[in-house]
Design a binder for these strands. Structure first.
Lengths: 101, 101
DNA sequence: TCAATATATAACCATAAGGTTATATGAGGA
DNA sequence: TCCTCATATAACCTTATGGTTATATATTGA
């Protein structure tokens, strides 16, 4: 299963996901948005790939990355369920809200 | 600020939080719930303390742990905001729902 | 074909996480 | 006082993370 805590545990990765939410991007485009090296960005992308949150597609000499919104949604659900499990009664209304979605 | 991803990133810590949600517990009680050593549990408790999610209270030879529900709620909020930021439009309805809480 | 650009990979470094065992300290009860 | 139980701490191990630099490979355009 997707380890959403691992995937979201780093601010760079959260920003990458945000960027991809606005549209697919090549690795170069992603690298340019950060002050870290290309291999460092690649490692973040690899973790997001490992966790299934993004996809990689070869496009000539480029690699194009895209969000897997289905996985993201279910990861999101996991967060809710975990928090609901932790806080129990406190979140009943929220749980109910989500179940209805 | 609370690093909620760090705090929730481990299943043992999530279970500890769940236990504390049912009521305060001593370290011994928490240790007994897991198959790992007392120092290992203590390290998890320390991380939860570092992140401000729980409190520790001396009680004779015992240490009693309790949830900080206020911090937990705001951490929860952070999770939502981060996910909302990532997914944007997709979660508008949920964001709106939470803002109203 | 050759050079430039995009990406991948290897080797390295420092720190953190999650665990262990062994041992020290502290508090309470008999 | 002394033993016992609860907790703390130290030292150690392994693996993961997040970064680096250097270099290899692949693709494309001139």
């Amino acid at each position: 299963m997707t380890d959403i805590y691992r995937a979201l545990g780093d601010a760079t990765r959260r920003t990458i996901l945000h960027q991809l939410a606005q549209g697919d991007k090549t690795q170069t485009e992603i690298v340019q948005a950060f002050a870290i090296s290309q291999p460092a960005v690649k490692k973040h992308l690899q973790i997001l790939l490992d966790e299934g949150l993004i996809h990689e597609q070869k496009d000539g000499k480029y690699r194009r990355y895209s969000l897997d919104r289905t996985i993201l949604r279910s990861a999101y659900q996991t967060l809710f369920e975990d928090m609901g499990y932790i806080l129990e009664d406190q979140l009943t209304s929220l749980q109910t809200y989500l179940k209805g979605k």
